[in-house]
């Protein structure tokens, strides 16, 4: 009887841990334990729209990293620090980032477009600043532009 209880308790603990694993791997799709190495890139925008910490950074739709922090620079420009997986460490410094929206009203994310490579370009390393940025589309601005036809860019 005591043996049976031990078995059932063991099975219960096992089922519980299996459930946690399922939630972690299948539902959240997180790389458990694979706290993979990352490096930081910095970009300054004039407007980040609805971008949030932990929003994804994508290259052609593939997630390569996450937004680590958002702060205001001394000249009041929003500064976004991104953590990029070290598996993707070959971006040239001619790459550009833009804040994009998935779908019409979906979440905002950082889209990274790798630039051209020639003799003068260097590979982006930890802490480097990406110069070429495009800010978020703000729906109200777009409507304003459409109505009054005044372009600010």
């Amino acid at each position: 009887m005591s043996k049976k209880i031990e078995l059932l308790v063991g099975a219960f603990l096992f089922a519980g841990i299996a459930a946690i694993l399922m939630l972690g791997l299948k539902v959240a799709d997180s790389q458990l334990g694979g706290s993979s190495e990352s490096y930081k890139l910095v970009a300054k925008f004039s407007n980040i729209g609805g971008l949030k910490v932990r929003s994804s950074v994508k290259v052609g739709g593939v997630v390569v990293g996450r937004v680590a922090s958002i702060s205001l620079d001394e000249d009041f420009a929003p500064k976004v620090v991104m953590e990029i997986d070290t598996n993707f460490n070959q971006f040239p410094d001619s790459s550009s980032v833009a804040i994009l929206t998935s779908g019409l009203l979906g979440e905002q994310f950082v889209g990274l477009t790798p630039g051209f490579v020639d003799e003068e370009t260097e590979i982006l390393a930890d802490g480097d600043l990406i110069e070429d940025t495009r800010s978020a589309m703000v729906l109200e601005d777009l409507i304003g532009q459409f109505l009054y036809g005044n372009s600010e860019d």
Binding site: L13, A15, G16, A18, A19, I20, M22, L23, V27
Partner: peptide, 16 residues
């Protein structure tokens, strides 16, 4: 303390 978090995880997993 050990049981309830496991039960809650099982609940969520089965629910999904």
């Amino acid at each position: 303390i050990i049981s309830l978090p496991l039960l809650a995880s099982i609940f969520s997993a089965v629910g999904i």
